[in-house]
Design a protein around this nucleic acid. Sequence first.
DNA 1: ACGATTATTGCGTTCTT
DNA 2: AAGAAAACAATAATCGT
Length: 307
Amino acid sequence: MAISDIYETAFDEDVQQETTTNRCPECDGQVMTNTVETVCEDCGLVIDEQRIDLGPEWRSFDKEQRERTGAPLTVARHDRGLSTEIGRGIDAKGNGLSGRKRRQLGRLRREQTRGKWQSKAERNLAHGLGEVRRISSALGLSEAIRNQACALFRSAQSADLLLGRSIEGMAAGSVYGACRCNGLTRTLDDVSKVAQVDRPRVMNCYKTLNAELGLPARPVTPGMFVPRFASELEISDSVRRRAEALAEAAEDGQITTGVSPSGFAGACIYKAARECEQGLTQAQVVAVADVSPVTLRKHRNALMETY
DNA sequence: ACGATTATTGCGTTCTT
DNA sequence: AAGAAAACAATAATCGT
């Protein structure tokens, strides 16, 4: 299982865009894989979720007992036998203790508080990882990405990045960060919506992750949105290819700087569909790209002026 | 706090049936 | 002719710096 090993250690070492070449099942063309989304270069077929179940489970402790679904086992684990206090000085009958006994109890107490501390950290970890899992599955992310997000969260906790921030927020930030590192087109809005954490908080967590951990996040370009929108709108391959070409050309120019990538991608698709005389209304594009009609037109006009 | 981008609203125009 | 869709302008809200 060499592939899973790569993903497991991806964050510890140096996260690379893991690209492999394969053949498309439909047209036998070249397919591009960027860790999660597998897209055929020729026919545009999206072979998604291909890597489901290939990755290892996120638990690094308790290797024997692996769990595939449901809440993490750790919720049944917290405070297990650790809420006991050890008194000092006297025994159960109120009698004094020998020095040797007192020292023994002192050692026990020290170990016990250590155990408590560990338990708290583990509880936070379990909670956060549970959130990461929930958000990831709500967004339909593959297991590889989910594992990376979990690894990110663990790193965040180890680096004491959770201080003053909510666990939920950091979980959302980890998921978003994992998406950004793999060129996935999940919006900050997408994440914050399912995570029930408002956008600024998610952004704050993501930024601190980025700053402290040095994520290899790539900037989001309009072209990255085109395949997703294309399959959601069920447009033809020729239109999709034209839209991709438009997006790429625009990225080379300076038109795309400062504008929302998703909106611009929508404009590319709209213009491409219009060129090919395909019945694609603005309303449809606007719905999937989540922008207003006026910005769609604005970008399309900018596109028409230069190309 | 400021400048730029985007959303919203309203209204006259164009295309289709 | 009627209705839908696209276009345009102005103002409000939002975002990034």
